[in-house]
Amino acid sequence: MPDLISISVNGARIGVTEGVTVAAALALAAQARGSVGATRHSVTGALRAPLCGMGVCQECRVTVDGRAHVLSCQTLCREGMQIEAAQ
């Protein structure tokens, strides 16, 4: 039974279905702004978002609970999780 859990994305609290990935949560949070869930800045400063969806490309790296370079496509959201991503 999918529950709604509360997480924070760049300081803003949002509710997501338990079991979605952090990458999905970023996309859901971005949807309201009409944008795609960006994850990081490239080394020359461009916004990037997930590419391969399976933990290979490393484009989906974000900071989770203070730990940098976590692969958001392979990480499930948890109650209270704090996510920082590029915007």
């Binding site: 979605v20 990935t21 960006a38 590419l51």
Partner: peptide, 21 residues
């Protein structure tokens, strides 16, 4: 190809199965 929103084909399928809107 580096624009946000460009993904692999299997990539978007995987993301969608993970809850991507």
């Amino acid at each position: 190809w580096t624009l946000p929103g460009v993904t692999g084909a299997g990539g978007l399928q995987a993301l969608a199965k993970g809850g991507y809107p």
